[in-house]
Design a protein around this nucleic acid. Structure first.
Lengths: 589, 589
DNA sequence: ATTCACACGTGATTC
DNA sequence: TGAATCACGTGTGAA
């Protein structure tokens, strides 16, 4: 519900984009809503995206499809972990687009911005005024204004014509992906480049950070804001099919809705297909264009749902997600045979982050209303109308989640023979066995070799005192749902939940040049070390050195943090407050 | 595909088995057909089964269900890959049933065979005349003539009363499964013991080879030849439904066959439910007896809805969970929440195996066409009759295959947090990452240590030979077989993902009393400190001391953690793996 | 045309 | 109730 926002802007933007309108190359009035969407997406993401560009599709005079700058939003790396500006000095700028010097860059940028008047929205965010120099990413972003892509041309073109999501992370993938733009991006410090095909074009996101795992919440969000990609599919594919499938999906509403509406929607609808995805590796030359078809927004999806509240089950995850879903879709992801590709490299790993706002979801228009009835199979009739809706959506989400797990699995299994799930699973099994065997072997080998040389070392120990208690089963998660949640042992207060904590927490901050020395003293329950590190991560600061010691239920933590000058946390007070707040605060996740 | 063979014979066999006849206790004339079926099954399998026994169900005077020798077929190990008779010399024959000497054995066997006159069919095959001595397996087989099982008694009894497939491979599983017969089998050299519940009893297969992966083609074949198990669990499952499913399987022929045939078969058919399966691990004491119920086929036609009567009975075991499904079915195998018995023992270790599961299937009432009732949803009607049938069955098989892959995966992933597929997948991913990390670490460690002294060499297969079969011991059973063929990797490629990034993470863990000293070395991006602390928090461990230093994009973290003794993370390996997995992150979502 | 693999919607069944 | 999971039957696109 909250994000109904979507609906309004989307509809408007949709309208403009839908007809594809003229797809004006220059940004028009419509750009503002477009840009708001871009901004919204970036700001609601926890990952640190540097910019978002919407490449709008249109046909050139010869009728060929071309993607050109629709609108963009630059957020900068500010948020992120590493220092933003320090690395630009050495830009190789080999590409044709950019030249090296900062001042020159800035000048050009200002000029362009002034020209387009579009920076007004984003300018203030990061560098506009305050910033002293233009980052590589920024330069890359601005230079993109002049870019355009034919179908299959560059990452955006490929994404658009294939309908597949492109998600490239790391220099290797960027370099290897057969795309000039990706290579340029890499040169300019972009580590993650994503192209999400949407109804009227392609949403491109770039980040200086390595964002290995595909954030499906983001993808879904993009779909809902910009409309799902037309079903391009392989040549044929036929829109008809798409339409039909879509229909199936939306049958629910249709049941109640009068036929006329139905048809109407049909025309405007797009298939909400969920795209395939391409990570690294070879691009797929897929096919054709033909996308115009329909775009639109209204489609809606029904739903309601909204919050799931949290619910027990272990600390694991749950919670986040956001999802949305669009329409019917189908297709692929893992296995659609045709698209595949993925395989090759991806490595993966890391992090969790994520999140997305919860919410989203969409308006449910339609619905009840009753009217004429659907002629077609009432489907069991009696069961009622809405429970099933919810159920359907839930099931859909479940499937999607499951599929993403499959993607994740695929990403860590090196040689997946075929693209289907069954093969993936058995290959995974084989791979695990292989790894296990290898581990055993290495271990025994290692032991054999150095076994004798090492003497045990011993020591230490300390303690005596208290065993902290319990946690009995670490695995806990599974078995007993209730309670859990990490509860902490010990002193009552606790934890995670929040707030209160009170207790004895002292924070001292001393700035020394670009470093901050932080000392946090607290009691030792509630995983203070994790909380402090999380707080630091939240502020996107980097740890240079840290030392934590635990004595008698007291935890003393000393941390040296690198603080970007001119950042928000330049002052001792500000940093201290921010850290303290997060340290005491709820844990995120 | 290979086993489509089923089709032709199936039709014929169907006829005979179908009525299942009244399940006479003594072998009757019918036995010959029974035996032909057994022989057929064994001979059409590529795996090397030593024997097949059909345990026929009946009620004893007190009304208790009892499984007794129905018929059997001994093939010996000959057909298969390994040498048949060479291994019998060392029989330990500790069991009560057999005594050691060959001559004695042979004598007894001949006597028995003569007595029953039933060996005529199989006698000639292997041992009868030509064979010089009696193998352990043969002895075991013959001694089975005198055996009988009450419900829940021994593997056959369990399989029958639960309706679950029992598939035990390797000494461990055979020993561990709470069944005297399995232990005896193991003693007599049987490495794989399978009990497939069918309509009138249980089909038991034994092999001297390790056949780890459940051969579902075989299971299906058994079902089609002997009729699917009655739906014990709770009752019923209507035959009607079953009928449809069965039909599906044999559709091939049916397609051509006239309708009349179709119906005819239909009547006799039994539910084709697929069973659950039990591999190793603790047996579930399932329940009740109650099975007679339908056991056969005749009932089939009758029902249509029926079902549920029964049903609750099993409560008893419930205590542990288990339920088994009640009625119809579905359930789970992998995830059915309730049944999970599995989890408990599973944890054990890594390695292999285990698992269980169960399930069974189905029935959905429904039915189509057929006979009596189809009251419920005619389903689209128009689509036609057989294409869909075929399709349905195909889909069913696909699902089944997929599930088995899941079981397989589960069997190699050590700590599966929850029983559902999604958790399994993400745990698998985490586990793979962890293994990968471990491999990397070991490799680098190894390289570092012996790098200078020895030329590279790297793993590869055991190099000169030595180590090789360390595993030999009992564990052998499980893990080994497969990997054997997997090996592959061989030098270079190993790194799996290839690429690069995540790779540089090293984790070392050393346990010292109740403390663990952990050293993590990684690159400095991505907030490694927060990730490590989070990982530790996830494991619910407390930090005693920690020190992190960041130099040149490298982050070195040393942490002393208090580990509850006897906890899950008491072992260095386990803790390391757990930390690494979490450090690398699974996001899950 | 037939096979294979998916995703979808749906009913069950659990907690 | 409501939220989960699952299996099933079905429609559909690719090979």
């Amino acid at each position: 519900m909250d994000e109904l926002i979507v609906s309004s802007p989307s509809s408007s933007s949709m309208v403009s984009s839908l007809p594809q309108e003229s797809r004006p190359i220059t940004t028009t009035a419509a750009s503002s809503s477009l840009q708001l969407n871009l901004q919204y997406i970036l700001q609601t993401q926890s990952d640190c995206w540097a910019y978002a560009i919407f490449w709008q599709s249109s046909n050139d005079q010869s009728g060929r499809v071309v993607l050109a700058w629709g609108d963009g939003y630059f957020q900068g790396t500010k948020v992120v972990d590493d220092a933003p500006q320090n690395n630009n000095g050495n830009t190789t700028s080999t590409t044709g687009s950019g030249s090296g010097s900062q001042s020159e860059r800035k000048k050009v940028m200002k000029g362009i911005q002034a020209l387009l008047g579009e920076t007004s929205a984003d300018g203030q965010n990061d560098d506009g005024s305050v910033d002293c120099d233009v980052t590589d990413a920024e330069w890359f972003y601005v230079m993109s204004l002049a870019q355009s892509f034919f179908a299959d041309d560059g990452a955006p073109g490929k994404a658009f014509s294939s309908g597949n999501l492109v998600w490239l992370t790391g220099g290797q993938q960027l370099q290897f992906y057969n795309c000039q733009r990706a290579r340029e991006a890499q040169i300019h410090g972009i580590e993650t480049l994503v192209c999400i095909p949407t109804a009227g074009g392609v949403l491109e996101l770039g980040s200086n950070a390595l964002i290995q795992d595909i954030n499906w919440g983001l993808v879904q969000q993009a779909k809902s804001l910009f409309g799902p990609a037309a079903d391009v599919g392989a040549g044929v594919a036929d829109a008809a099919a798409a339409a039909t499938t879509r229909l199936l999906l939306t049958t629910k509403q249709q049941e109640e809705a009068p036929e006329s509406v139905d048809d109407e929607m049909l025309e405007g609808a797009i298939s909400f297909a969920d795209f395939g995805l391409v990570m690294g590796g070879i691009p797929l030359h897929n096919s054709s264009n033909q996308q115009e078809e329909e775009t639109d927004a209204a489609t809606a999806g029904a739903e309601s749902k909204k919050d799931h509240h949290r619910y027990h089950h272990h600390h694991y995850q749950e919670a986040k997600k956001a999802k949305k879903r669009g329409e019917h879709d189908d297709n692929h992801g893992i296995g659609r045979r045709g698209t595949s590709q993925v395989s090759s490299f991806l490595e993966s790993s890391d992090s969790d982050c994520v999140v997305v706002v919860e919410t989203t979801t969409r308006s449910h228009q339609v619905e009840r209303k009753g009217g004429v009835g659907g002629k077609k199979r009432g489907r069991k009739a009696g069961t009622g109308r809405e429970t099933p809706l919810n159920h359907v959506e839930a099931e859909r989400q479940r499937r999607e989640k499951l599929n993403h797990r499959f993607y994740a699995l695929r990403s860590v299994v090196p040689n997946v023979s075929r693209m289907d799930k069954a093969s993936l699973l058995s290959d995974a099994v084989a791979y695990i066995k292989e790894l296990k065997g290898k581990v055993d072997e290495l271990e025994s080998q290692l032991k054999r070799i150095e076994g004798n040389k090492k003497s045990v070392k011993i020591e230490v120990a300390d303690s005596n005192g208290n065993t902290t208690d319990n946690h009995s089963t670490t695995t806990a998660s599974s078995s007993v749902p209730v309670d859990q949640r990490i509860t902490i042992p010990k002193s009552k207060k606790s934890c995670s939940g929040g707030g209160g904590m009170s207790s004895n927490v002292q924070v001292e901050v001393k700035m020394v040049g670009t470093d901050a020395m932080v000392r946090v003293q607290s009691d030792s329950s509630g995983y203070p070390t994790a909380r402090l590190m999380d707080a630091i991560r939240d502020l996107e600061l980097r740890v240079h050195h840290a030392s934590m010691s635990h004595v008698n239920d007291l935890m003393l933590q000393d941390v040296v943090i690198r603080v970007p000058p001119s950042g928000a946390w330049a002052s001792e007070e500000g940093l201290k407050a921010a850290l303290l707040g997060r340290f005491l605060g709820t844990d995120d996740r």
